[in-house]
Write a protein that binds this DNA or RNA. Structure first.
Length: 391
RNA sequence: GUGACCGUGGCAGAAAUGGCUUAUGCGCCGGAUUGUGGUUCCGGAUUAUGCGGGUUCGAGUCCCGUCGGCCACC
């Protein structure tokens, strides 16, 4: 099971600055400049009423959809018949699909794990759904995403060592099954994307030695990309950064590294500093829906009374559709009045904020000034937060 | 005009025969959220029993008066 995997993508590093790197990842669905933040569209939609056209307007390079959720609704067979998830949502840039592995964690009350796979009880109607490596690959093949993620188990950060070791070993066996199944599916006629890529996922909670051993093991498979999963699930930031420092050096330097589910702007700045290329997180969309908007000087809760008469845009100088035309006061009002538009504008702004952050990060790396840039951004965010506390 | 019923925070609306500092929901003020079970979850505040008297150890609850509302009848 050590034969190299041939998949159509190229990864070309444009600039390095310490461990930070900026690269061009080329796929059959287009190029992605890294570091990049993937915009999360779990059910083939950005929650909060943001459309594919909106994403094009704010510089989104790649969207992320979810296998478990689309399997349940509308069903991968329907998405397949509609030409795959990209045609379905009329989004013609790359899409990465998460495998359902995270739901093994987030829906832990509703599933049972065996060697074969995971049996879920649907959170929608309670019906049983079995998903193992083969099922996940079959669904993702139907969805036709650019990048399929390996089906893994995401164990909680606090899990005991013995459990984590056993879980990681199983995740490794599942990865072999994912590879075999996806290669078979890519070769079938009628496949939506016969060049679908597979990223492997490193696990090991906060046990450095398990992480490292697992990283070496999967690095040898020469997959088109590698993810670090099982972080931001209960450990401290210090632990998360420590895991990155230990693990990233053992993943192939000539392949993209994806830190799954992370995170805050600060998490991202620190992740890039340690060699991460891809990020995704629900924060910009979920926080936007809850009235929180990101700015260079920290996060604002526009629901707060102090914004009722604030004439400034959510973030001064931001080119997004919300900031170009609307005031904090207006968006505050929309939230108070329960108007959908409030959520839409806040989510749009937040995604634009993240996309712009990534673009600046790439520039800073290209200029060889990444550390200074990251330090400054982090300091500004903290300065802003303390100002708000005083006010 | 006569009679009945009813007045509890910003609003709605509970408090068994009188018995500890009167719920609860909404709203309000904050906070949380990391590969999205989130229109979610958690916390907090309001000097709430129309007004005035009385009975009682003790009154939102009983009595009298008064103001207001509402209904029925004339």
């Amino acid at each position: 099971m050590s034969e190299a995997v041939q998949m159509k993508s190229t990864y070309r590093v444009i600039a390095r600055d310490g461990a930070a790197k900026s690269a061009l990842f080329t796929t059959v669905h287009g190029e992605v400049k890294t570091p990049v933040f993937m915009n999360v569209a779990t059910a083939a939609a950005i929650k909060g009423g943001v459309s594919s056209a909106d994403l094009e307007g704010i510089g989104t390079q790649i969207a992320l959809c979810n296998t478990y959720h689309l399997r349940l609704r509308p069903g991968d067979d329907i998405v397949y018949r509609m030409g795959g998830v990209r045609a379905f949502m009329d989004w013609h840039k790359p899409v990465l699909t998460d495998s359902g592995g995270f739901q093994v964690f987030s829906l832990s009350e509703r599933r049972r794990i065996t060697e074969q796979g995971v049996e879920f009880r649907s959170h929608i109607d309670g019906r049983k759904l079995f998903m193992g490596p083969e099922e996940s690959m079959r669904i993702q093949s139907h969805l036709g995403s650019t990048i399929a993620m390996a089906f893994d188990e995401c164990p909680p950060a606090l899990a005991e060592r013995d459990y984590v070791q056993a879980s990681v070993d199983r995740t490794t066996r599942w990865l072999f099954r994912c590879i075999r199944e996806l290669q078979r599916l890519n070769g079938l006629s009628g496949t939506v994307n016969p060049d679908q890529l597979l990223f492997g996922i490193n696990q090991g909670a906060v046990y450095d030695d398990i992480r490292i051993e697992h990283a070496k093991r999967i690095a040898a498979l020469d997959l088109p990309g590698y993810a670090i999963g099982g972080l931001a699930v209960g450990e401290t930031h210090a632990q998360m950064y420590q895991v990155l420092e230990q693990t990233v050096p053992h993943l192939p330097a000539e392949k993209p590294v994806y830190l799954m589910g992370v995170g805050t702007p600060e998490n991202i700045l620190e992740g890039v500093r340690r060699g991460v290329d891809f990020f995704d997180c629900v924060y910009p969309s979920r926080n936007g829906r809850h009235g929180h908007v990101y700015t260079a000087y920290g996060k604002l809760n526009l629901m707060n009374r102090r914004f009722a008469t604030d004439e400034r845009p959510p973030e001064e100088g931001c080119p997004c559709p919300a900031c170009r035309r609307h005031s904090r006061a207006y968006i505050h009002h929309l939230f108070k009045a329960g108007e959908l538009l409030g959520k839409r504008l806040a989510v749009l702004h937040n995604l634009c904020f993240y996309n712009r952050l990534m673009s600046e990060i790439r520039e800073a790396i290209a200029e060889g000034a990444y550390d200074r840039y990251a330090d400054r951004r982090i300091a500004e965010m903290h300065a802003g937060e303390s100002e708000q506390t005083l006010a």
